[in-house]
Design a protein around this nucleic acid. Structure first.
Length: 803
DNA sequence: CACCTGTTGGTG
DNA sequence: ACCAACAGGTGT
C-alpha cells in the first residue's frame, strides 16, 4: 500500500472527491499512514490539510505527488466516522471535507499562512528589506499595498524572494515546565551547607527538594515557596536543578471537587421506564426509545443508571444536552456519579480545552461524554448507549454546513454500534412522538413527578383585559402580587421574556418611521445601558437618534419590551428586589453564565429574569413562582413550528417552579389567551396538544406528514436573486414528481440580511428519491455563479429555521 | 507592447 | 478556494 486516497481541505464542488498521493518510502512497511489521519499534501502550488480515507496499490494518475507530512500519529477519525461523513455528505448535501471537519474540535483544523521569504537579501534595497522581520513578511500585510506589492512581485519573479505556504496546527498540546534535581539528597544536603547565607531563597528551594518530591511543576514550586523564577533559574544555571516540559490536559473542572454520589432509589414508574433500556443494553439491540416524562419526573436519574449499566458492560456512552442547559449543575451530576470517567464538551470551553477533552475520549481515558450537539461525533469505538436529553430542542440542528440533526446522527451511530438511543423530553417534538405512536420508537412514559411534588398551578392572564382595566404596565396585577408575595416570603421567582434589549423597535410618532438596520431589513432594538440601537441579526449598531431621519420630528418613542426594560421596571416597582438578568448581553463573557446562576442558587437574588436560556434544566428548590411575560412573542413568527415552540417553551418554563417541597405557581401573560398552544401548555396537556397540532400539520402538509426542504438564494442584488430563484424553481418543477409541492420562489421572511437579498423555495414531499440528485444538480448548475458572482444557495433538507 | 481586468480550467 | 494562464481591452 503505497498510495493514499485523500480528501483535501478545499470546500468546493470540483474538489469534493479523493485525490491520490504517493506515500513516501520511509513510511511504507510499517503501515504508518492509516485511514483517518490528517496529513499535509501539496495541492497545486500550495499545501493543504487532508484526511486519508483509504489506501491502495494502484492509481490511474501518472504524475503523483507525495504526502508531505502527517499531523497525527494515530487516526483521528475511525472507520465508522469516515463512513458517517459520507452519509452526512449525502443526507445534508455538504462537502465531505466539511463533514469531517465538523467531527473534530476546531483546534484540529489547520491555519494557513501565506508568507514571503527573503532569499537573496544582498540584492534587495534596504527600504524593502526593512519590511521583513526575520526575513519573513506576511502576505496579508502586503497584498493590498499598491506601492510595495508590485516591487515584491518583481523580486519574486527574479527569485530573490519566494512564497511559502505555512501551515499551523492549532492543536497544541499544553505543556508545563517541570523542575527536578540532578543531585541525590545527600549531595543536596552537602550543597546546602556550602551555600552563601544571602542566597536565602535558593537554600529554601534546595531544602524543598531534600524534604519533598523528585520533581514538581514550576508554577506549584513558585506558589508553595512564595518565590519567583529567578532563584530557580540560578540553581538551574549552577547545574543543581534541571527543567523539562511535560504535557498536561487543560482541565476546565480541575479546581472543583465532586462528591461521589450513589444511584438514587427509583420510583416504580422510573424502574418501569428504565427496564426496557437496560434490557436493550444487555442484549445489544439498537432500539430507539422516546422517554416522555413530565418536568421533574426524574429522567436524569434514569440516564445515569442506564449509563452505569453500559459502563458495567465495558462500553461507552454519549449524553447530549442542549447547549444552554449544560449547566454546572448538570456537569456536577455526571462528574459526581462517574468521576474521572467523564469528558465534557460545550461552547463555554476554550478551543484548547475542547481539544483536550476530545483527546481524553480518543485515548480511551474516559467512557462517558456529556456535551452539546457536536459531542455526537465523540470518537468512541464501543458505544453502549446514546442519550439525547430535551430531544425537542432546536439547537440539536446545526444551522450551518453540515446541516445535520444530532438526533439523526445518533440513530445512525446507534445502528452501527447496535446500541440503544434514548430520546428524552417533557414535550417531545411532533416528529418523535409520531414515530413513537407508529411504533418506530418505543415509548416510555413518566407521568408523575418524583418526591411527590405536584405540577405547578398555572394561570393565564389576558393582557387585553388588563389594558381595559387601565393597567398599562408590563406586569399584570396578579403577576405583580405574586412577585411581591414571594419577595416577602423570601422565596424566589423566575421571569421569562423572550426578547433581549430594551425596546424591540423605535418609531417616530409623527410619521411612523421605524428605525431599521441598513443591512438587514429588520427593526433595530434599543439597548439602554449604552444608548445604542442594535441589529440582532448582524453586528450593526448605531447611536440612538434624537430626531427622526424622515421628518425631523423629535417624537421618537420606544415600543416593545425587552429584558432590559423589565429590569428597569422592576427596579422602580420593587426597589428592594434583587434581580439577576440573564440574556446574551449579560452572559457573553466567559463564565458569566455560570456565575449568574450560582449567585441565584446561593439566594443572592430574588428574581431571575431572562430569555430562552433560563427555560431549561434549571432546578432551584426555592423557586416557587414563574412568570411568563409575553407568551405569544413566539407565536407570531413565520414558522410552522411557532405553536409547537410556544407550547414547549411555556411547559418548560413552568416546570421550573415548585420542583421540591414548596408548591409552585405560574402566571402566563398573553394577548391570545385562547390559543390552543397556550391553553394546553397551561394544563400541561401534551396529548391533546399533540392531536390538535398533528391535525393542523396534516392539513397544511407539514412534518411529520411531509418532509421539507428549504432552498434559500441570496445575492447583494435583488434582480440576481429573483432570477436565480426562478431558475431554481423551474428546475425543481421540471425534475420532481407531481406529488411534490413546490412553493415559491418568494422573498424570505427576512428579505434582506447582512446586505444580501434573500428568496426561498420550499419543497414539501413524501417520497422523492430523485430529490438529492436534483438538488446536487442545482448546485452544480449554479456553481460558477456561486464562486464568481457572490451568489449563495443554501439547501436545508430538514429546516428548523425558516428565516 | 506594457499594463490592467476579467474569465477559464485545473488542482493527484 | 486558489492559482496560473489566457483573452481582450485600454493607453502611450
Amino acid at each position: 500500500m503505497n498510495i493514499a486516497k485523500i480528501i483535501v481541505d478545499v470546500p468546493a464542488n470540483q474538489i469534493d472527491r479523493t485525490f491520490d498521493y504517493l506515500i513516501p518510502e520511509d513510511w511504507h512497511d510499517e503501515d504508518f499512514i492509516q485511514p483517518g489521519m490528517r496529513v499535509i499534501v501539496p495541492f497545486g502550488p500550495r499545501k493543504v490539510q487532508g484526511f486519508v480515507v483509504g489506501l491502495s496499490n494502484e492509481t490511474e494518475i501518472k504524475k503523483l505527488k507525495s504526502v508531505e507530512s502527517v499531523l497525527d500519529l494515530t487516526p483521528v477519525l475511525t472507520q465508522e466516522l469516515l463512513e458517517l461523513g459520507e452519509w452526512l455528505r449525502d443526507t445534508t448535501l455538504c462537502f465531505l471535507i466539511t463533514a469531517y471537519q465538523a467531527m473534530l474540535p476546531a483546534a484540529m483544523k489547520v491555519k494557513y499562512e501565506k508568507e514571503v521569504h527573503l532569499k537573496n537579501a544582498q540584492t534587495i534595497c534596504d527600504e524593502l528589506k526593512n519590511l521583513f522581520v526575520n526575513d519573513v513578511i506576511q502576505w496579508k500585510e502586503i497584498e493590498n499595498n499598491k506601492l510595495i506589492f508590485p516591487l515584491i512581485q518583481k523580486e519574486l519573479k527574479k527569485g530573490n524572494m519566494e512564497v511559502v505556504y505555512r501551515i499551523e496546527d492549532r492543536a497544541k498540546k499544553k505543556k508545563v515546565k517541570v523542575i527536578s534535581t540532578k543531585k541525590t539528597k545527600d549531595e543536596l544536603l552537602q550543597l546546602l551547607d556550602s551555600f552563601p547565607n544571602q542566597a536565602l531563597k535558593q537554600k529554601e528551594i534546595i531544602q524543598f527538594f531534600i524534604d519533598g518530591p523528585e520533581q514538581i511543576e514550576l508554577q506549584q514550586l513558585i506558589n508553595i515557596l512564595d518565590t519567583t523564577i529567578s532563584p530557580i533559574n540560578s540553581l538551574i544555571k549552577k547545574g543543581i536543578l534541571q527543567e523539562h516540559y511535560e504535557e498536561v490536559y487543560r482541565d476546565p473542572y480541575e479546581k472543583r471537587e465532586f462528591k461521589q454520589s450513589e444511584p438514587l432509589p427509583l420510583t416504580e414508574e422510573q424502574t418501569k421506564a428504565m427496564m426496557p433500556i437496560i434490557e436493550s443494553i444487555r442484549k445489544g439491540r439498537h432500539d430507539v426509545f422516546l422517554m416522555y416524562g413530565v418536568t421533574g419526573s426524574g429522567k436524569t436519574e434514569i440516564y445515569l443508571q442506564a449509563i452505569a449499566e453500559v459502563l458495567k458492560q465495558g462500553k461507552e456512552a454519549i449524553m447530549l444536552v442542549p447547549e444552554i442547559s449544560l449547566t454546572p449543575m448538570m456537569v456536577a451530576r455526571f462528574k459526581s456519579r462517574f468521576g474521572a470517567d467523564v469528558a465534557v464538551l460545550h461552547s463555554g470551553l476554550s478551543q484548547g480545552e475542547k481539544y483536550d477533552e476530545w483527546r481524553k475520549i480518543q485515548r480511551k481515558e474516559v467512557k462517558v461524554v456529556v456535551g452539546a450537539r457536536s459531542a455526537i461525533f465523540a470518537p468512541f469505538e464501543n458505544l453502549g448507549i446514546i442519550i439525547i436529553d430535551e430531544e425537542h430542542e432546536t439547537s440539536y440542528k446545526q444551522e450551518e454546513n453540515p446541516r445535520y440533526h444530532a438526533r439523526d446522527v445518533a440513530i445512525k451511530r446507534g445502528k452501527y454500534h447496535q446500541c440503544p438511543v434514548v430520546l428524552g423530553s417533557a414535550t417531545p417534538s411532533l416528529e418523535s412522538f409520531a414515530r413513537a405512536q407508529k411504533g418506530v420508537y418505543r415509548l416510555l412514559t413518566l407521568k408523575k413527578r418524583i418526591n411527590a411534588s405536584v405540577l405547578p398551578a398555572v394561570e393565564i392572564v389576558d393582557m387585553r383585559e388588563e389594558l381595559r382595566c387601565g393597567n398599562r404596565s408590563m406586569f399584570s396585577k396578579i403577576l405583580f402580587e405574586k412577585l411581591k408575595d414571594r419577595l416577602e416570603k423570601g422565596e424566589q421567582s423566575v421571569l421569562f421574556l423572550n426578547r433581549r434589549g430594551f425596546s424591540t423597535f423605535v418609531m417616530c410618532r409623527d410619521c411612523g418611521f421605524v428605525l431599521r438596520c441598513p443591512h438587514c431589513d429588520i427593526s433595530l432594538t434599543y439597548h439602554k445601558h449604552d444608548d445604542m440601537l442594535k441589529c440582532h441579526y448582524c453586528s450593526f449598531e448605531t447611536r440612538l437618534l434624537t430626531t427622526c431621519p424622515e421628518c425631523r420630528s423629535e417624537h421618537i418613542r420606544f415600543f416593545g419590551t425587552g429584558t432590559q426594560k423589565v429590569e428597569e421596571e422592576l427596579a422602580k416597582l420593587l426597589p428592594e428586589a434583587r434581580v439577576i438578568r440573564m440574556d446574551v448581553d449579560t452572559t457573553s463573557r466567559k463564565g458569566a453564565h455560570e456565575k449568574l446562576l450560582s449567585a441565584f442558587e446561593e439566594k443572592k437574588a430574588d428574581i431571575l429574569l431572562g430569555t430562552q436560556m433560563i427555560a431549561k434544566g434549571l432546578d432551584f428548590p426555592d423557586v416557587t413562582f414563574v412568570g411568563v411575560l409575553a407568551a405569544d412573542s413566539m407565536l407570531h413568527i413565520p414558522d410552522f413550528r411557532a405553536s409547537e415552540k410556544t407550547f414547549q417553551l411555556i411547559t418548560q418554563v413552568s416546570g421550573r417552579a415548585g420542583r421540591h417541597e414548596l408548591p409552585g405557581e405560574v402566571v402566563i401573560q398573553t394577548y391570545t389567551p385562547d390559543h390552543y398552544s397556550i391553553v394546553l401548555a397551561a394544563k400541561t396537556d401534551y396529548d391533546t396538544y399533540y392531536r390538535k397540532e398533528m391535525a393542523i400539520r396534516k392539513l397544511y402538509h407539514y412534518p411529520p406528514f411531509y418532509f421539507l426542504t428549504l432552498i434559500t438564494i441570496s445575492h447583494p442584488e435583488l434582480m440576481k436573486v429573483v432570477d436565480a430563484a426562478e431558475k431554481v424553481s423551474a428546475i425543481l418543477r421540471g425534475r420532481l414528481s407531481n406529488q411534490a409541492i413546490i412553493l415559491g420562489p418568494v422573498a424570505s421572511p427576512i428579505p434582506r440580511l447582512k446586505n444580501r437579498y434573500r428568496y426561498q423555495c420550499m419543497i414539501k414531499y413524501k417520497d422523492e428519491p430523485n430529490l438529492g440528485r436534483t438538488l446536487r444538480s442545482i448546485l452544480h448548475h449554479f456553481q460558477q455563479e456561486m464562486s464568481r458572482n457572490d451568489l449563495q444557495i443554501s439547501i436545508d433538507m430538514n429546516p428548523f429555521m425558516m428565516i
